[in-house]
């Protein structure tokens, strides 16, 4: 029996089917694809993207955008390392020699603070979130460049930067079939579990869906909408900084362009995972599917030795297809509403 609702359900969970198909496709294309090493690489690549997408998912569900997270990620990584390594050539740090744990707290708090400031500008300043976060994207990137003055900050092989490399690089344990699971993957997994609980089982999440669905109604029913929006940006900034911590532990040095253009992939991940740009719709599980799909495609194409240009073309096409599916979702929903009301 044909039913729009069933079709909608299928579309909402399409991501997992596609993931399986893509996975099988790559297995046939490259003998290295199904190696433990490769799987572990896919997961590790998914880890940083994952935390940013998780933050973006909150923001999108509340009906907002946060374009600034790639810059926040870069700055958080930079500041985190800068605070602990010596000044001068090869490391180019601040020469402050801060306790590394303290520097991580500083870096994470800075991420949250940046988010909070963005939230304040949007809510108190009555400005559009797209413009505010676009401006923040540029301002924070500019600050990063001014900060480094072109010299990359490096914590590589520096014992005090170990905490960064622990999160970025360290393998936590070995899982048969999945290879060595890195600390970053574990951390991202944990982030997703907590975020899922917040969205699905906490009043905070429920209120975000309400705000994204009908802001006016949420406000009328006594939800402090502006406060929630500030909190959402804070969360997004905090998660971006966490991503920065992970990434800082994966690169030899932090250039002033760390994370640049990453935001496109972040949005792609969220949208492919079924998080709606119109607000009020999406789940953490779906977003996770989007993240895994993107990293799988990326690694698979690399293994197939597809040229960089084509990888870009394919990534762009995947985003387009995802948007196309999202558009059909909206149309199907209208059709399904008409169909149900005609039945009555």
């Amino acid at each position: 029996m044909f039913s729009y609702n069933r079709l909608l359900f299928l579309i909402d969970h399409l991501i997992w089917g596609i993931l399986v198909l893509v996975f099988v496709f790559f297995i046939f294309q490259s003998e290295y694809f199904l190696t433990e090493r490769n799987i572990s690489n896919i997961l590790t690549a998914a880890a940083v993207l994952g935390v940013l997408v998780a933050g973006q998912t909150f923001v999108l569900i509340s009906g907002n955008f946060d374009l600034s997270t790639e810059s926040t990620l870069g700055l958080a990584a930079l500041v985190g390392i800068w605070l602990i390594v010596p000044a001068g050539p090869t490391t180019f740090g601040g020469g402050i020699f801060m306790n590394p744990y303290l520097s991580i707290i500083c870096s994470l708090s800075m991420g949250a603070l940046i988010g909070y400031i963005i939230g304040c500008l949007i809510t108190y300043g009555n400005m559009h979130n797209f413009i505010v976060t676009l401006a923040a994207l540029l301002v924070i990137r500019g600050l990063m460049m001014a900060f480094t003055e072109g010299a990359p900050v490096s914590g590589f092989n520096n014992p005090s930067a170990d905490v960064f490399y622990w999160l970025g690089h360290e393998k936590a344990f070995k899982l048969p079939g999945l290879g060595k699971i890195s600390v970053a993957v574990l951390a991202t997994g944990l982030v997703y579990i907590v975020c899922h609980l917040i969205l699905k089982h906490h009043k905070f999440g429920r209120e975000l869906y309400a705000i994204g669905g009908n802001r006016d109604a949420a406000e009328a029913l006594g939800i402090n909408v502006n406060r929630r929006i500030r909190q959402v940006y804070m969360l997004s900034g905090l998660l971006a900084a966490l991503g920065g911590w992970m990434l800082a532990g994966r690169v030899v040095s932090i250039q002033s362009n760390l994370g640049e253009t990453f935001i496109f992939t972040v949005f792609a991940g969220a949208v492919i995972g079924g998080v709606s740009l119109q607000g009020g719709r999406g789940t953490m599980l779906g977003a996770l599917g989007g993240v895994l799909l993107l990293s799988t495609i990326d690694r698979g194409l690399n293994l197939m030795q597809v040229s960089v240009f084509w990888i870009k073309v394919i990534q762009g096409s995947v985003i387009l297809v995802a948007m196309l599916i999202d558009a059909q979702r909206v149309r199907l929903k209208e059709l399904s509403i008409i169909a149900t009301s005609e039945k009555k």
Binding site: K203, R206, Y209, A210, G213, N214, A220, L221, G222, G280
Partner: peptide, 24 residues
């Protein structure tokens, strides 16, 4: 009961009823 009802289309009936005063 508001003139425009103030419902969130994306939420279930139950979620709408309890919006702003969920049972925790």
């Amino acid at each position: 009961v508001y003139q425009d009802l103030k419902l969130c289309n994306n939420l279930t009936a139950s979620a709408n009823v309890f919006l702003g005063r969920e049972i925790n």
